[in-house]
Design a protein around this nucleic acid. Structure first.
Lengths: 331, 331
DNA sequence: GTTTATTTCGGAACCGGTTCCACTTATTGA
DNA sequence: TCAATAAGTGGAACCGGTTCCGAAATAAAC
C-alpha cells in the first residue's frame, strides 16, 4: 500500500502539495498532472485512519437498531444506507438485540469512535439515553419516537390511527377489539391508540374494548384467542402487523374464517401482509423513505445546518381482504 | 476527550509507560496505581484511529451482504454480530443491494479501511471477486457458496435437496414441477436440484419437469401460473421459500386449494412459512448458527490459525400443511 | 561489596495524513 | 520600473497512539 509520501516522491513534490491537491488547495497545472499520474500508477488512496486522526472526526454515521430481523428495521436501514452513500457518508450498524443497555453502550462506543452523527431507531427513550446523548456531544437523530431534547423523524402514528378508525367505522364495524401494546412505546402504544380513539368518539353506539399484548406473534395469538371467546369482537384493530398476524393464527386455530366471521387490521405495511391470503388491511408507513430523510437530516446536523426538530413521515391505508364491507353484505 | 499524554501527566509518568500499562508491558506496582487512578478520573479511552494508524489493522470484520431485507441475510448477520462481539471484534456491514459491482467495490473499500477480515454472503463468485480478494490479501470467508480458492461455509444444499426429494416421493407425489433458479447460483440453482434429482432417480414412473424462475415472489407467481395450466403438477418443489410463496399466491388467484389440489414445498425455513396458513413444508437452514460459525472461523483466519476449507451447516425438513399425504387419502 | 542480570521507565522515532507559515515566483497596477 | 499582491510550493509541527532503545534502579549472584 502506498502512502502520500510515495506519491510525493514519484511526482517530485512535497507531501503537503499532494495533500493540497487531494483537498482542493491551490496547485499549479503542471504539478497537478504529475500528481495525477503518480496516483494513477500506484492506485493510491489515502489512509482513512490518518485522516480521521487529524480531523478528529469521521464521515461515518453510527446507526443503532434494536433488531435486524424486522421489516421496519431493514427497510429503514436500506433507506439510510443508500442516502448516506450518495452524500459520501458511511453507515455503521450497531445491533442491540432489543437490549436497552446495549443501546447506551453503543452511544458511548460511537462517540469513542468519533462518529460524525448517530441515528437511533428508537423504541423507548430513557433518562440514560438522554444523559448519554448529552454527554457525547454528537448530533443525534431519533427515528420512530419523538423527544423534546432531540431531532426526530416519526411516522404519522396519530393520524394513521385516526384514519384506521374512520376506515373501520365506515365499513360498518361497531364491536371492536383494539389490541395494542405498552404505553412506554409512545408511537405505537400511545399515538396510534389516541388517533383511533378520536375516530371512535365521532360516532355513537360503538362497543370498543382496549387490550394490551406484546410485540411478538405467539403472544398476540394467545391474547387474541382469549379475547375472541370473552368479547367476540367483529374486528380486531391491531397496533402492529405482527399482532395482526397473531390474530390470524388464533382465528385459524379456532376455526374462524376471515373476513366472514372476523375482520383484522394492522399497522406497518410489512411485506408479508400482502403476501399471505387473505391479505391484511393495514396502515402502511414508508420506512425506506423515512430512512432516506433521516440520512439527509443527520448529515445536515453534522454540518451544523438547521433542520426542523420533528419531521413527520406519511402513511397510507392499504385495503385488503381481511376486512369486509358489512354495509354491503346481503342480509 | 483526554489523550494518553493527559494521563501520563496526571500520573507523572511518560506516555510510553501509560501505553505499556494499557498493553500489558512491565510496569511497577506503584506506577500502575497512579495510572489506574488517572484513567478513572478522566474516563480515558484510547483513540482507535491512532491505534489503527500504527497497527495498520483494525479489529473490524467487514461483512458484505447482497440485501438486508431477507430473512436469511438478517439471521446470518445476527449470528455473525453476536459471535464477533464475544470475540472482541466488530462487524461492519456493507449492503450492496444485489449489485455485483458494489460487492467488488466493497472489497477494495474494506481493504482500504484495513479491515481485519471479510465475510461475503455470496450469491455468485465472478472472476472479479477472485481478483479482488487475491489482490487485497485479507482473510476472506464465503457464506452460502463454495469456491476452491477460499474458505467457505455452506448450507447442506445437496443433502437437503435429496431429503426433500425423498420426502415428496414418500408422500406419494409423482407428478412434480421443480421450480428452480439460475445455475449461476451454485448452491441454490445447482446443488439443491442435483440432490433432488438423485432422489427422483431412485424411483420409477415419475413425471418431473424442471423450470427456472427468478428469486422474487411476483416472478415466481407468474411462472407458477403458467406451469399450473400447462403441466398441472400435483406438487411444486420450489428452490426457495419465496418462490413457494409465489406459487401459493398463484394458486389462490387460480382458485386452487392447497394442499387438496396442489402441494408446495420450499427451502430456507423463513419465519413467514410458519406464520401463514397453510404453513409451507420446507428445508430449514440454520442461518444464525451459520453466522456464528462464520464469525469464529474468520477470527481464526485473521489470527493465522488453520480452519477447514469448507464447513457444511446442517438442515432439517419441517413438515407443515402445504403437503398432504396422498397415500392416506380416502379414495 | 562488586559484578551481573532483570525490571522499570523515559526519550525519541514512527504511523500517514493535514495545515500553518514562510519563502519564491509570477502578476498586476501605478 | 518598482512596489504590492496573489499564486504555488516546501518544511515543519501536529493528531494520539505504539515500540524500540538505552539509562537508571533494583535484585540476584558470587
Amino acid at each position: 500500500m502506498s502512502t502520500i509520501l510515495d506519491i510525493a516522491k514519484l511526482a517530485g513534490v512535497a507531501k503537503s502539495t499532494v495533500s493540497r491537491y487531494l483537498n482542493g488547495g491551490s496547485v499549479g497545472e503542471a504539478t497537478k498532472k504529475k500528481i495525477e499520474q503518480a496516483i494513477q500508477e500506484t492506485g493510491y488512496s489515502p489512509n482513512p485512519f490518518a485522516q480521521s486522526l487529524k480531523a478528529k472526526k469521521t464521515n461515518i454515521i453510527g446507526t443503532i437498531v434494536p433488531r435486524l430481523d424486522s421489516y421496519a428495521s431493514s427497510q429503514t436501514l436500506i433507506g439510510i444506507d443508500e442516502q448516506l452513500k450518495k452524500l459520501n457518508y458511511q453507515m455503521l450498524i450497531s445491533n442491540t438485540s432489543q437490549n436497552l443497555e446495549r443501546e447506551i453502550e453503543s452511544i458511548y462506543s460511537f462517540a469513542n469512535q468519533k462518529m460524525a452523527g448517530i441515528i437511533l431507531l428508537a423504541t423507548e427513550i430513557t433518562d440514560q439515553h438522554i444523559q448519554a446523548f448529552e454527554s457525547v456531544k454528537i448530533p443525534v437523530l431519533l427515528i420512530g419516537q419523538e423527544h423534546k431534547n432531540f431531532h426526530s423523524l416519526i411516522h404519522d402514528d396519530y393520524d394513521a390511527g385516526y384514519a384506521m378508525g374512520q376506515y373501520v367505522l365506515e365499513k360498518g364495524y361497531r364491536k371492536i377489539a383494539y389490541l395494542g401494546v405498552t404505553e412506554r412505546d409512545i408511537s405505537v402504544g400511545v399515538k396510534r391508540k389516541q388517533g383511533f380513539k378520536r375516530a371512535i368518539q365521532e360516532v355513537e353506539d360503538c362497543d370498543v374494548r382496549f387490550y394490551e399484548t406484546l410485540f411478538n406473534i405467539p403472544a398476540a395469538q394467545a391474547s387474541a384467542k382469549e379475547i375472541i371467546h370473552e368479547f367476540k369482537p367483529a374486528i380486531f384493530v391491531c397496533a402492529t402487523d405482527n399482532i395482526a398476524l397473531g390474530v390470524l393464527k388464533a382465528s385459524y386455530s379456532e376455526g374462524i374464517t376471515i373476513p366472514r366471521d372476523l375482520a383484522v387490521t394492522g399497522f406497518g405495511g410489512y411485506d408479508v401482509t400482502g403476501i399471505i391470503h387473505p391479505g391484511i388491511t393495514t396502515a402502511k408507513f414508508f420506512y425506506k423513505e423515512a430512512g432516506e430523510t433521516a440520512a439527509r437530516h443527520i448529515v445536515e446536523l453534522v454540518n451544523e445546518r438547521t433542520v426542523e426538530k420533528i419531521t413527520v413521515s406519511k402513511f397510507e391505508i392499504i385495503e385488503r381482504e381481511s376486512v369486509d364491507n358489512l354495509l354491503k353484505r346481503p342480509l
